[in-house]
Design a protein around this nucleic acid. Structure first.
Lengths: 68, 68
DNA sequence: CAGTTATGTATAATACACTTTACATTTTTA
DNA sequence: TAAAAATGTAAAGTGTATTATACATAACTG
């Protein structure tokens, strides 16, 4: 699952550290999410969505699996 | 965080087992989600939302925290 | 009432989200 | 160009989402 965190963060011109503290996680967590190391929890996804003023679905891109 | 899984499932008149296999988790997971034992992962939340034809935000209710 | 289907509880095991710390590299800016 | 700020990597530890199995109870159906 891809996400638009890095893209949205750059638009807002804030650092990973600023985003991290805004959504109350560590910078490590933001780095790992941006670089696709793992997926956010639902709660964190929601916090990030609220922060950017978007819905979860606008930020986290679930490319339709299950077509096979 | 509350969710409307049980409510939506009853509307559709399907069993926990049917929902579980539809979204590819065990019945245990559905039971635990419905009874508030823990929160779904983002991927599972999405699968459930797709199954019910709703958005994640329509099913998982994040009552605004962080007001204090 | 007897049998089946649906729901719930308990517990141990596994996988993964997230933290912490420390260091390395890139980018910005003075 | 040198200092500072931003980004990335690595590895070990904690908490929690999910599985698996087994059993108990409730609800429906014949």
């Amino acid at each position: 699952m891809r996400n638009r965190i890095k893209e949205l963060r750059k638009e807002k011109r804030i650092s990973q550290e600023e985003l991290a503290s805004a959504v109350k996680v560590t910078r490590q967590t933001i780095i790992s999410l941006e670089n696709g190391k793992y997926n956010a929890s639902l709660i964190l996804a929601h916090a990030i969505a609220v922060y950017f003023g978007k819905t979860i679905e606008e930020i986290f891109l679930f490319e339709e699996e299950g077509s096979c």
